[in-house]
């Protein structure tokens, strides 16, 4: 009886999972159809790589992809430059103000992007940052910094202070302590933090659409250009989308466990 129940549960669970995943699956197979075949709902067809070739030859796809890569990795690195020293100080040398500083940092995330769209646009215009990779790196760094500090802080807090103390007693210098003790112990946590920051920056569409056009547009903004009703090229749209989505989805699946912590600032365990 129990086994029977589990079987039904499993079937229901899988049906729901397939329904939810279906649009992504459909995009993935349409990418391998011809442009004419893309409009028919056939599941059986001769797969072709034509759309991928077209996407690369007809548009500067590689350029947009490089923009996405530069912007997401660049902003993550800059984020860490600011976040790691701050998190190190907060976790190993906390003061009475540390908690309120952390909360205040998080509260900067609560600002809806639309509230500061107009001034940011004009600041960017004044400083020549519109449609530049640097501009988006600046925005995404600021957007992700609270999450970076918060997550690094949580990971540092898990490292027992006694180990660092033991190192100090054995005569390790500060740099030796950081390099030989702290770095290896915090590396797993920091790498999942990095992955989460990259995912957020990669998929961000509000700022990328509003602040970039042809030159520095990342993939989010480029795909938006397929929205014109005249340009209904489904196979090409699918090919471009699949390449833009697939790598990040794999990263997302890998960080599934840490994701909840990063998304909720540790409020849900």
């Amino acid at each position: 009886m129990k086994k029977y129940g589990n079987l039904i549960l499993g079937i229901v669970g899988w049906i729901i999972a397939i329904i939810i995943f279906f649009p992504i699956f459909w995009m993935a197979i349409t990418a391998f159809k011809t442009e004419q075949g893309a409009y028919s709902p056939n599941l059986i067809f001769i797969p072709t790589l034509d759309s991928f070739r077209e996407v690369f030859s007809r548009s500067n796809y590689l350029g947009f992809m490089m923009n996405s890569i530069f912007i997401s990795i660049g902003s993550t690195l800059v984020c860490f430059i600011f976040a790691i020293p701050a998190a190190y100080k907060m976790s190993f040398f906390p003061t009475l103000k540390t908690q309120s500083t952390l909360l205040w940092m998080l509260s900067t995330k609560m600002m809806p992007a639309v509230g500061v769209l107009v001034p940011i646009y004009f600041l960017f215009r004044t400083f020549g940052l519109l449609d530049t990779v640097t501009g988006l790196i600046v925005i995404y760094t600021l957007m992700n910094l609270p999450i970076a500090v918060w997550m690094s802080y949580t990971y540092f807090c898990e490292i027992p202070a006694a180990i660092l103390e033991a190192g100090r007693i054995d005569g390790a210098t500060v740099w030796q302590e950081l390099w030989h003790l702290l770095r290896p112990m915090s590396l797993p946590g920091l790498s999942s933090t990095a992955l989460i920051l990259i995912i957020f920056a990669w998929n961000e569409a509000f700022w990328s659409i509003n602040l970039t056009s042809a030159k520095a547009a990342p993939l989010t903004a480029f795909i938006a250009s397929y929205s014109s009703p005249e340009g209904l090229f489904w196979a090409k749209l699918s090919a471009a989308s699949l390449l833009a989505v697939a790598p990040i989805m794999v990263l997302g699946w890998l960080t599934q466990k840490q994701l909840v912590q990063g998304l909720t600032f540790g409020a849900v365990k």
Binding site: A17, I24, A205, T220, M249, L251, G252
Partner: peptide, 18 residues
């Protein structure tokens, strides 16, 4: 579970267009 959480990693412009 991976299939269920997949949409979260699709960029908004792609979700909207598909």
């Amino acid at each position: 579970t991976l299939l269920v959480i997949a949409p979260f990693f699709v960029m908004p412009t792609v979700s909207a267009l598909i």
